[in-house]
Amino acid sequence: MHLKRRIKTFAITAILTMTAATASAQDLLARQAPIDRKMKAVDTLALRNLIEKEQVGSPSAQLYKEWSNKYAHRATELPDSFLINLRDFCMPTTSKVITSNFGRRWGRMHKGIDVKVYIGDTIRAAFSGKVRIVKYEARGYGNYVVIRHYNGLETIYGHMSKHLVEENQVVKAGEPIGLGGNTGRSTGSHLHFETRLCGVALNPALMFDFRNQDVTGDTYMFHKDSYESESVLANKARGKDAGDMAQADDSDSSSKARKASSSNSGDVRYHKVKRGETLSSIAKKRGTTVDKLCKLNHITKRMRIRPGQILRYS
């Protein structure tokens, strides 16, 4: 009799316990449901904020629909206006000498700036970004690199002697990407430097001041309807100086004036080789010696010089 009562009591207790646990679990789930909904909303908001921050930090994501390692540049539709962030930059080379401006040259458009560098000089990334192209083009850029930057620009570095990066590599501003050279369609060692927006070439002088080794400002506001006229003004303000002198009229009076200016000021001067010129004729014209020309340009007397080649003479 006592055994039956104990079994009955145990069974009732177990049923009540299970009922209470089920009710408690249901209460817990009921309380947890609003929390789950709130957390889901928070996660969605955080993800949205993260995406917005990435888009603000990387305008290039808004401008370019594809990533390709096949072509150097492909023009797409330009925005009517676009603010380009020039902060955290690094000059691609320490050279201050522009040997050829952006614009029409020899019957065709020269879509970059030529900067005098020597073979082996370090070439650096102008801004942080990702390397899109590392290639060799025999009849064009020679050894070249294309980098897409977070500020929306793409920069091209041509005629280098050696690549120091690989495609799809992330680089920081100032990181070495290659060495100066004379490869491809080039008549003398120099860096061909281009800045492009949506594949369209913009004058680097609008943003870079090589002579002062600086940018023109913290930002540059691109306007599709005015950038061409701004480019002309930029060339006048920040274009080549000694290079212009080499292409100017070489009359005796102007030549003597340049020689006097060179000897008195101590400025670095360059000569652009013309057809038929030799080291001796250049030395005579510039009031220097063949030995000095060879020493300044790291060449030998027997080395052949070509039309268009840039030689330092002081």
Rank of each mutant, 00 (worst) to 15 (best):
T219L: 06
L233C: 13
A205F: 06
L202D: 01
H223L: 12
L233M: 14
F210G: 01
S231E: 04
H223M: 11
F222E: 00
D214I: 05
D209G: 02
M221K: 14
A201L: 11
V200N: 10
S231A: 10
Y227F: 15
D225F: 04
F208Q: 03
F210K: 03
G199A: 10
D214R: 04
P204A: 09
F222Y: 10
K224S: 12
S231Q: 11
S229T: 15
F222R: 01
V232H: 09
A205I: 04
F210L: 01
S229N: 14
L206K: 12
V200I: 14
A234R: 12
T216K: 02
E228T: 13
T219M: 07
T216S: 01
A201C: 08
N212D: 04
P204M: 05
S229F: 13
D218S: 08
F222V: 07
Y220R: 05
D209Q: 00
K224M: 11
N212K: 07
E230S: 09
Q213N: 11
S229V: 15
T219F: 07
L233G: 13
K224V: 15
D218P: 08
P204S: 01
G199I: 14
L233A: 15
D214V: 05
D225P: 12
A234L: 12
V232L: 10
F210I: 01
A234K: 05
F222W: 01
S226N: 11
V200H: 06
Q213I: 05
D214A: 09
A205D: 02
R211W: 01
A205V: 10
V200T: 11
A201D: 06
F210Q: 00
P204T: 06
Q213R: 07
E230T: 03
T219H: 07
L206H: 09
T216N: 00
H223W: 00
Y227W: 12
S226K: 06
H223C: 08
N212L: 03
D218T: 03
M221E: 13
A201F: 06
K224F: 10
A234M: 13
Q213P: 01
E228A: 14
L206A: 06
S231F: 09
L233Q: 15
M207K: 06
Y227H: 14
S229R: 15
D214S: 09
M207N: 03
D225I: 15
F210R: 02
E230F: 02
Y227M: 07
G199Y: 14
G199W: 08
Y227L: 09
E228P: 14
Q213L: 13
K224D: 12
L202Q: 07
